[in-house]
Design a binder for these strands. Structure first.
Lengths: 115, 115
DNA sequence: CATATAGTTCGTAATATTACGAACAGAATA
DNA sequence: TATTCTGTTCGTAATATTACGAACTATATG
């Protein structure tokens, strides 16, 4: 099958979901997102280096990738950089997941009410 | 930091989420999962080859990856193979996402009620 | 049995991911 | 100003991902 403008089967949502998933496809990045996704949570690169078995440069690359994916943002608090979730894009990701899981929405709601 | 048995920061959930995300990190695989995740939905490899700009062998690799991740399963209906979602693992993935998005649960519920 | 059909596996090549240490940039501090 | 601290970028190497076509397996069909 030939890919043209008119018959592109990968719509905007599919591309967004795959990019979001790619950003979350490494344990280090999931760890960071989990840490940051709590209400008002933030952290510094140094915190992560102490918690994780990874070097500073590799960690910096992971942070860069999460920034590039729009999922986190860094605020300079010299000499540190304070990282936190990019709420707008994070909620967009939540939306996309919700849409994908729409067929299992019944189960989702069941477990929500059980909380 | 050294990684030992006792201080492994990547727990089971983190590993599972990253593996699930990896399985969803390519547009072809998101397309397949979206197609199959609807109630009682299924498809054949031939359907996908006709819908997507990808060869049979590459598609087969993507299907293999989704199978390996436990997200889909194939049932032989010779000469075809009928693919569908592996509901058990799919719902586990929903659980993990829900847990990750727990901090944005308020927004999630808001949009649920709006449906 | 010969052939066609559906799909997988293999071999290969191009590109992407991941990690490390060294070198670097910028700000705080002695 | 020299030094220290935090974090990024660069260069490099190992490994993983992705795609293709050819060859293969298995089943259905003439």
């Amino acid at each position: 099958m030939e890919l043209t403008q008119s018959n592109n089967p990968y719509n905007e949502d599919i591309i967004r979901i795959s990019k979001f998933a790619k950003a979350m496809s490494h344990p280090v990045r999931v760890y960071i997102l989990r840490k940051l996704s709590g209400m008002n949570s933030c952290c510094y690169s140094g915190d992560l280096v102490n918690e994780l078995p990874i070097g500073r440069s590799a960690l910096s690359q992971h942070l860069k990738e999460l920034k590039h994916a729009g999922l986190i943002q860094g605020e300079i608090k010299a000499p540190y950089i304070k990282y936190c979730i990019n709420r707008e894009n994070w909620e967009k990701a939540v939306e996309l997941c919700k849409e994908l899981f729409v067929s299992t929405r019944i189960e989702l709601l069941d477990s929500e009410t059980a909380l």
